[in-house]
Design a protein around this nucleic acid. Sequence first.
DNA 1: TTTAATTTTCAGTATTTACTGAAAAATAAG
DNA 2: CTTATTTTTCAGTAAATACTGAAAATTAAA
Lengths: 174, 174
Amino acid sequence: MSTKPEAELRAIQDNFIGQWGALGSQWGINRTMAMIHSYLLISTEPRTTDQVMEELEISRGNANTNLRELVGWGLIRNVVIKGQRKDFYEAEKDVWKIFCTVARERKRRETEPASQVLADCIDRSKHLTSPEAKHLNKQLSELNDFVQLANKLMEKIASKEDSAIAQKLLKLLS
Amino acid sequence: MSTKPEAELRAIQDNFIGQWGALGSQWGINRTMAMIHSYLLISTEPRTTDQVMEELEISRGNANTNLRELVGWGLIRNVVIKGQRKDFYEAEKDVWKIFCTVARERKRRETEPASQVLADCIDRSKHLTSPEAKHLNKQLSELNDFVQLANKLMEKIASKEDSAIAQKLLKLLS
DNA sequence: TTTAATTTTCAGTATTTACTGAAAAATAAG
DNA sequence: CTTATTTTTCAGTAAATACTGAAAATTAAA
């Protein structure tokens, strides 16, 4: 069974996009958003909304919303092509930069609110004296300490220029 | 405005459980599962399915399913209380252990399948020669290298007995 | 055994989340 | 300005996910 290389490539790309989208939705990531991101990640050229719509077989509204969302995350950017009226989008291709961007955004959007909830409950339970209240306060404090520590670690790692730091850490742990 | 300490504690607990559940659903975590986990986390005593149902105002089926799911994740365990026929559940309270458990489970359930998808697409695109195919192969290889590295790092960290390692890493990064 | 208590399952339903398509708004060319 | 192109919004709908409640299965006491 021989297939045209062109068609074979397309099959692999489609497979990757689909599988990656499915995986993304296990984490809090919208399936379409993950698919658009992977499509742009493996594209050699910037793409228009219409190309995204056609490739992923989705509506204009859906494509538009998720493209903007990706821009909001800093994972893709709008590029202008001279003489072309339409918007083009391209993904950041450097894997380390992608990681840093995601780490920072998740910190801002998720761990900071979480820490806020913890701080609030810790504060409100501080003056209570029952054993149950003591336990609540202690448990939440420990959780908060951990979240803060993990945050600082992530911050340090994600502020590095390249992925060499990860290699170094790995060696240090061996 | 004075409130009974007992009621005040309850209010804080309920607030925490609700907020934590909402946060959990941002990540791929089922709201109820996150709520049950936080309820058991701040409980001083093991709880029965009926207590969970009552506290969170959920059905028996829902409580049962999510309790089993939490047991499956290794975040809570079944405890037997002498003379009692019902099952009791208690959460692992050590924050570092919770982190290690989650890290290991997510690796097993999520990053390993992801790596599998990548390996498969890399392999299938290996023999193709077009620039587009080369780009696909390179991009996926870089992604896979990163995933593998991150995995190894996590593995090392999550295999440590206590959280002292996190402190050490933080210092090394400063 | 039989019976009572408890847990599990799952069909049906509710809720949440995501998507479509068309209309409105914005932008830029003529 | 006026018109054509492109982007954005959003009401309505579809799809995915989670939940209920009751029946079936399991477990253990009598």
